[in-house]
Amino acid sequence: MSAADTVPAPRRTGALAAFVLRRPFAAVAALILIAIVAAAVLAPWLGTVDPRKLNVLPRMRPPSETAWFGSDQFGRDLYTRVVYGARVSLIVGFTVALLSVSIGLFIGLVSGYLRRLDAVVMRIMDGLMSIPGILLAIGLVAVSGASMKTVIIAITIPEIPRVVRLVRAVVLSVREEPYVEAAISVGTRLPLILVRHILPNCIPPLIVQATYVAASAMLTEALLSFLGAGTPPEIPSWGNMMAEGRIFFPIAPWIVLIPGCALALTILSVNVLGDGLRDRLDPKIAKRM
C-alpha cells in the first residue's frame, strides 16, 4: 500500500503534544501508569527485600520513615510487597486485555459476516453475559484450582462477549456503508474486505475497550484473591494482601488500605487513560458514553 502507510512522522508527534495539552488528566494518568510499570519491572532494585520473607520487621508495625508502608501480621515489609504486587495486577490486566480483545475480535468479525454462525454465536454470548462476570470467574477458578493461568483464563472468558458485541456492532454498521458495497462491486474478496475496510474501523474502539478490560481484569483479580478464589496465596498480589490483612483491620488498617489504594490508583489511571483515548479515537462512542 502506498500513501496510506507513509503518513509523515511529524504529524504523529504533533498529535501526541495535542493529546497532552487537550487532555491533561489522561496525560497524568499515563505518567502514573508508566511509573507503576517501571516500579513493577524494577522491583528488585528499588530498595526492596524478599517479599515472602517473614519477620523482616516487627509484626504489624505502622508506616514510618524507615518502613514506608509498615509491616503486616507476619512481619513482612509491606512496601516490598506492594511494589511486587503491582507485577501481578499488571500482568493480569495486560494478558486478559490482549487475550479477550484478540479472541473477541476474531469471533466478532466472523460472526458479523456469516449470518448462519451469527445466531448461534450470539446466543452463546448472551448466555455468557447473563452470568455475572465475577461469579463465572469464581466458578471457573473453583473447579480448576488456583493458579495464575486459571485466574487469567477465568477472567478472560467473561470479558470476551463484550468485545464480540462491540466488534459485531461495528461490522454490522460498516458493512452497510456504500464504500464497502463499492468494494464488493469491484470484485474484492471477502477476507480482503474484512481486513482492508472493516478491521480498521474496529481498531480504535477496541484499543479503548482494551483499556477498560484491563482495568476490569485487575479489579476482578483482586476481588477473586480477596475472596480466596484467586491468585495462590503465596504470590504477593494486592488482593491476597488485603484478604490476609482483613481480620486485623481494626488494629492494623494499613495492611488493607495501602494495597487497596495502590490498586485503586492503578485502575483509576487505566480508566482515565481509557476515557482520554476514547475521546481522541472514537468520538462517536465518546458522545454516547
Binding site: 482495568a215 479489579l219 483482586a222 476481588l223 480477596f226 488485603m242 483491620f249 488498617p253 488493607v256 488500605l257 487497596g260 489504594c261 490498586l263 485503586a264 485502575i267 483509576l268 487505566v270 480508566n271
Partner: peptide, 12 residues
C-alpha cells in the same frame, strides 16, 4: 466510582 474496588471503598 468506577475505579474504586468495592472492598477498598468498604474498608475506607
Amino acid at each position: 466510582g468506577f475505579s474504586f474496588p468495592v472492598f477498598v471503598l468498604g474498608y475506607l
